[in-house]
Amino acid sequence: MTGEYVLEGLAVPESLNLLHDLLERAGREHPDLDGADLMLFETAVIEVAGNVVEHGRPHGGVAWTFRLAVLPDRLEATLSDSGEEYPGGTWGTAMPDDPMQETGRGLPLATAVLDDLGYRRTGESNHWTMLRRRG
């Protein structure tokens, strides 16, 4: 069973809860989907989206479209946003060296739970692609 979901909105903190709701709905509509797979994918989606909320410019004025596909062998999502080009360029898998550091764990956490995390810039948009193979 496959399913596709789309959510459009503004990249602001409150929109994160709509993403959570969408992923929970996808889980309810796909009872065959392993709870751990969904939980880890949700973790990654929220981190990537949170990164756009925090670093997307102009701050508070970035629009996004989230697309999720629940496929027999994998979960795939793309988050496309209208913000300026992501300045990070690359991102690592390394957690902060200092455990008392309060930030810097978002994208490393997303990387840790995904089989693939990609970023590309096309035209005026950023595209974050997320893939997790179902266990």
Partner: peptide, 16 residues
């Protein structure tokens, strides 16, 4: 029901 890196940051902030 769910924590993200912001929530972790808040716990670390509280720990400090």
């Amino acid at each position: 029901t769910f924590i993200d890196s912001s929530g972790l940051g808040a716990l670390i902030s509280g720990l400090k």
